[in-house]
Nucleic acid binder design. Structure first.
Lengths: 255, 255
DNA sequence: GCTTGACCCTGACGCTGCGTCAACCCTCCA
DNA sequence: TGGAGGGTTGACGCAGCGTCAGGGTCAAGC
């Protein structure tokens, strides 16, 4: 007769594992000797080895019991099912690996490569790191909800980079965000540039751009990054636009 | 301001998950409104999306916090580590799949194919299902501890199948195990056949066969399957052998 | 003003397969 | 006889939430 330690050693498992199998009813509790020790026979060793064989093959403990006393076809069925589960799990992990491989650079976190290179272009034209981070978070919001629209939106954004007025807009915004001044004299210039950009964009896209995008959230994000953005938002609204993120008119343009 | 439900919906996670991230300190607790509801701003949405991006990539929650405020090289390092973990996990599952693929037939549970075909051969020569099951469990014990020796042992076992005396031995054993008789007249014949087989085997292998094999366990297994085996064991010992499973002499043969 | 349904809150257990104490008992060997 | 190295039960811990239970709140319709 074997003690639990000998049994476990024979099957190559821990004592704790054996006791666990008892607890969940997978391995029957054996007789006890006078001092309360469990005493095992050879059949227990065989049972334990069978259990471990299935467990090593990825069968959940909860199903091993049924499988051990199933007929051949039921067994084969269960094997099929478990193999399918394993396949799914492997697939999930493969996807994870692909995803993590895309996380090489910091910016690419949750962003498509087009957006990453757009952000790099912003840096090249002299936009401050702070403003770029704000842009990045905005794009994270957009691409989280409308990942498919990103590739439709980006070409227009890249085109803007060739527009000297757009470049100037971003540079001035950069400087303003770096300064500590509460009320910057360049606010009106920036608002004019923005309004012009919005008008152009509205013309280009026929004012039907991207319904359902999280504009409120984008505005809120900007305000959280810099509360002074409220002043700019007010100026934009004075010029008849709903927000800088939205080519949508509140009022018709004069004339 | 967003409620927890809106936040969760935006990031595509459950409310429970968000609360969990609060609990483990991954996402900071936001302000509460007058009625105690959590109120979130846009930055929380961004944070949550970043968290989910890493989590979906297989990063453990416990490491996401550090990764989010790590510099590029630390981040890349962590990515490497996690990718390695994922690879290991996938490999483990692949092995599981291979193992489970080998469990197609019932007998092959924990047994190499050689053994399975040996058992099939036993069936072919008319050995009862009961005895085959006993053999099978014996081989499970042997191959659990000495899987590498199986391929050394099996050829000799297959050779025995061509020996008419061996075949007769197994057939008689079969019949005896099926009967209910407590004391079978054929015991002596069987013991003689066994002793002869053991002598042959001892000669063939030079009496040095397979030290450390679980002979006691094999004997015990047989006795558990059929306590009447004890009588047979006694007869074998009378003939000078330690056990039927062991080509080892207790006493020198007469003459 | 009252109900209804959809949210929100905290607290707690459940799942998987054991690892790892804690606190105590039993056996064997020097 | 004492200490090492077994054994016993009981309990918490792990990851990442799901899922109650037992409340309070909000907006809307009657």
């Amino acid at each position: 007769m074997l003690t639990i330690g000998q049994l476990a050693a024979y099957a190559g498992v821990t004592v704790r594992a054996v006791r666990h199998y008892h607890q969940i009813g997978l391995l029957p509790e054996p007789e006890r000797d006078a001092s309360g020790y469990r005493r095992y026979g050879a059949k227990a060793v065989v049972s334990l080895i069978k259990i471990r064989t299935l467990a090593n093959a990825g069968v959940p403990l909860s199903q091993i019991g049924q499988m051990l006393d199933a007929d051949a076809s039921t067994f084969a069925e269960a094997v099929q099912r478990i193999d399918g589960d394993l396949r799914d799990e492997i697939e999930r992990l493969e996807i994870s690996r692909k995803q993590i491989a895309q996380l090489a650079a910091g910016d690419s976190l949750a962003l498509q490569p087009e957006v990453v290179s757009y952000l790099d272009r912003l840096r090249e034209i002299g936009v401050s790191e702070r403003l770029v981070e704000g842009e990045r978070d905005g794009w994270i919001l957009v691409s989280a909800r409308w990942p498919d629209q990103i590739c439709e939106i980006m070409p227009a954004k890249f085109a803007q980079l060739d527009d000297p007025e757009f470049v100037r807009l971003y540079r001035v915004l950069s400087e303003m965000s770096e300064s500590d001044a509460d009320d910057d004299p360049r606010l009106d210039e920036v608002a004019d540039l923005m309004a012009a950009g919005l008008a152009e964009h509205a013309y280009a896209s026929g004012e039907v751009a991207h319904d359902g995008l999280p504009f409120d959230l984008l505005d809120a994000l900007a305000l959280e990054y810099d509360p002074r953005a409220q002043r700019l938002l007010d100026r934009i609204r004075e010029r008849g636009w709903a927000s800088w993120t939205r080519a949508e008119r509140l009022t018709e343009p004069p004339g």
